[in-house]
Design a protein around this nucleic acid. Sequence first.
DNA 1: TCCGTACTGGGTACACTGTACGAGAAGGCG
DNA 2: CGCCTTCTCGTACAGTGTACCCAGTACGGA
Lengths: 253, 253
Amino acid sequence: MTTEYSGAGDPAKSLELLWGLQTPPTRGPKPALTVSRIVASAIAIADAEGLPAMSMRRVADELGVGAMTLYRYVPGKSELLDVMLDTVYGELPRRQLDGDWRAKLDIVARENRELYLRHPWLLQVATSRPPLGPHLMAKYEYELSAVEGIGLTDVEMDAVVALVNGYVHGAVRSAIEAKHVIQSSGITDEQWWRAHEPLLQKIGDAARFPLASRVGTAVGIEFNAAYDSDHGFEFGLARVLDGVAALLVGRPG
Amino acid sequence: MTTEYSGAGDPAKSLELLWGLQTPPTRGPKPALTVSRIVASAIAIADAEGLPAMSMRRVADELGVGAMTLYRYVPGKSELLDVMLDTVYGELPRRQLDGDWRAKLDIVARENRELYLRHPWLLQVATSRPPLGPHLMAKYEYELSAVEGIGLTDVEMDAVVALVNGYVHGAVRSAIEAKHVIQSSGITDEQWWRAHEPLLQKIGDAARFPLASRVGTAVGIEFNAAYDSDHGFEFGLARVLDGVAALLVGRPG
DNA sequence: TCCGTACTGGGTACACTGTACGAGAAGGCG
DNA sequence: CGCCTTCTCGTACAGTGTACCCAGTACGGA
């Protein structure tokens, strides 16, 4: 299983692709493909079969062309990933944000969560300083607008947005991976803990990890129950937003 | 560039390795290697050259044996990664936690941060439900002890620990990736934004993203300055802990 | 109209990856 | 000693991204 890096390719090349800056040539045969068709295929494969299945040959097969043909449109796989990222960012609704900052950040968090659930492979792409595509720019602008004018410095605004985005990223990743493990193994968390109790007892002192086994079992039961899995997400998000609220106490805004 | 999954191998096999449950045979030639030597080599390579450089052949070369020899000691690369994870978790100091819950969580967060900075490849390993090695168990137990007896339910204790760990993970990842990009490209964030200003102006309406460019520039300057890079970490951590504090208001503990 | 030339398509090849298989060597036990 | 377990590791296979190069296409200028 592999995960990829964004921004690993030539930034200038990626930017040209992202903003559609390459001027189409007048001579020569008409291209059979377009970058967006390639990107759409790649996203479809990643959505359906995961990021590791998205190889250049696989995408090319899907489009009915040879593998090397893709390199006429995209400098390499890294740049393809960059464009995939920016493309799915374009799916975000970016509706009008109403209410106070908390309501706005709440919506932002939920929209990002939906996006991650729709494209789980996003969670496997490292996205620090990705090439600034138009949709990523718009996403950043949109998210900053949620905390504009509430008394934060510019740097604090960025930090708060990053904090919320980071939380959503982590929370969704945990949830998805837990679901995957349960699906692939057919073993729930609770069953897993129970199955390993004998092992844990055999390993030296069973009382060495009292908190871990008590809490671990409780969490397993909770997740195993027909418990609303959104609840865990809500809990963490509320904590993060409470933390931001504490920062704003006593500030004008 | 590739990243790996933990827990992708046979859990039972990983557990046997992690807890050292295999009984050494009496017959046959003496093994030339040990699992811990293999793991130490693998960790050294991953530390020095990154996770993608840690291939089975590379580790075998380092140890002066054939690639397939490793498979006598470790079922596969996934299980090797599991043991690597548990081994570095064993490096955590786990000193006596003093003070109130906030001081304790603060220490936990800092210790985890140090670990990530020492072994950046940890950030590229997906660790949801990794095989329960002895050191991971100890880590979990230690972290739970920071929030034990302060009025949280078991499930809340797990959620708070996961929240803090998730924050540290995300914050360190951002910091490390930002540093990598600056090192490899020689371009600071500020220079990057300035260099792309003409591009952004050329793209339709330059005023389309006023917040993004203002805040982006401010953040770039801040990071570029000889500004203590720990400051950003502190800010986010304080927000997270404030959020936990808000949860505890009015509870006995 | 016709050719040169810019361009596209894609086959082949290379250096990698993890690891299945199986042959040969080594060494404790009856 | 001989058996049988165990260890080492060469070879092989199905993948990966992509560099290189040749063949075919179609427009611009003559």
